[in-house]
């Protein structure tokens, strides 16, 4: 069975804000009609959420897929100008990505 990990980190400093491999969160990923992608994360307004909002233009967003006997497949999402927003009433953070690149780290520098 495949394992999926969702990660949000700072693109310059590398600080990790969300890592479902270490601290699970409820999230959903939906393809948008214009080709973009929308992450919806159910979470309280935490210090990590504040940092994500503060550094909304410097985010690296990933989904890692690991399956036994196969190399890890990483998908990186380009957030660009987002938007990245927090909905107080709904208790959810949304991150909109404009595009994505899928890559297999093992195929580099081989």
């Amino acid at each position: 069975m495949a394992k999926e990990t969702f990660i949000v980190k700072n693109a310059v400093g590398g600080m990790i804000y969300i890592d479902t491999g270490k601290s699970p969160v409820d999230y959903r990923l939906d393809a948008q009609e214009d080709g973009g992608w929308l992450f919806t994360i159910r979470t309280k307004r935490s210090a990590a959420v504040e940092e994500i909002l503060r550094f909304r233009q410097e985010l690296n967003v990933f989904v890692f897929r690991e399956e036994e006997g196969r190399p890890t497949v990483k998908t990186w999402y380009y957030v660009g100008d987002g938007p990245v927003e927090y909905d107080e009433a709904g208790g959810q953070l949304t991150i909109r990505a404009a595009s994505r690149i899928e890559y297999i780290p093992d195929t580099y520098l081989s």
Binding site: A11, V12, Q57, N60, K74, W76, Y78, V79, G80, I101, Y103, P105, Y108, L109
Partner: peptide
């Protein structure tokens, strides 16, 4: 960023993304 890096022989940074830099 201005990093003065010393990398050992045969070592380095695996595949990773960059944007808007």
């Amino acid at each position: 960023v201005f990093n003065d890096d010393f990398v050992a022989p045969g070592k380095g940074f695996g595949a990773h993304p960059h944007s808007d830099m």
